[in-house]
Amino acid sequence: MISLSQDRGLLSHPDALHVAQQAPLVLKDAPKTISASPWASLFSAPDTADLWITYENLLLSCLRSGDDKSAIECLDRITARFGSQNERVMALTGLGKEATAKGDEQLQHILTEYQEILGENAANIPIAKRRVALLRSMGKDSEAITALGTLLDSSPTDAEGWSELADLHLSQGHYPQAIFALEEVLVLVPNAWNMHARLGEVFMMAAASSSDAQLKYRAEALKRFARSVELCDHYLRGYYGLKLVADQLQEDKIRSKPKNDPDSFTIPDQETLARLSEVAMERLADIVRRYKAGEPLWQGYDSSAIAAAADLLDKTKQTLVR
């Protein structure tokens, strides 16, 4: 069951459809307009934050599933309540236009509109973000990177922006830049265990594509995964990465032992790596076993992640038997 009144991440397709199908009912139940006056709330429905988050969630899901009529209705109600000059409402309006735009000309038109809004008020962060997203969506990745760079220059504490920048660079294959941006995210939110794991994954990708700094990247990845499982017990993604990188480092060491790198980084010795790999494997096996046994308090994992972990465990078992 999906609660409508929560901010949430990306829904899967069936979930989005399910949410979008609820839209007409919710729209029918809720009153059309809600007054912000404290007197009016004595006689009519209260003006709660939940309602507006619900509308926003419905708007996103309806746009995604193509139910434009309900989406416009949601947008109208939000606009009626907060006014069309509210920055967040402006971004949502732009989102609606983007979704229903046909052809590149209209998109170009929306882009110039964003440009004009930003010309009037350059501090309109939601619109600046929409502009970056639209540029990226149109395939102009390098322009999007420049636009996002200016946005981050003016508001360098925006973790979401840094994270998007990392993703943009990653899609272009600029690993060092992506790593830098993710490190900025971690400076802002040092306890975000998923971002530590993400940085570890990017380090792994960078290691796979470069030949000279491979060991260094893997050593960093090891640290990041270890930190992510330190911050979060039973973190499947963290243990998965830890297991992979510890195994790879063990092989690397065997292959190229007497190598003194000028860069200052240390790789733990073989024993520690072997133990890390073992611990990660134990934890993964535990998680997979309990999830598959249907224990009630172990069902929060993603089924595809569990399948991947089970796969990894099978592979390790095979190599051990050999």
Partner: peptide, 10 residues
């Protein structure tokens, strides 16, 4: 931080 609702590519 990973789904980034502000930058959603609708």
């Amino acid at each position: 931080l990973e789904s980034r609702p502000g930058f959603v590519d609708i």
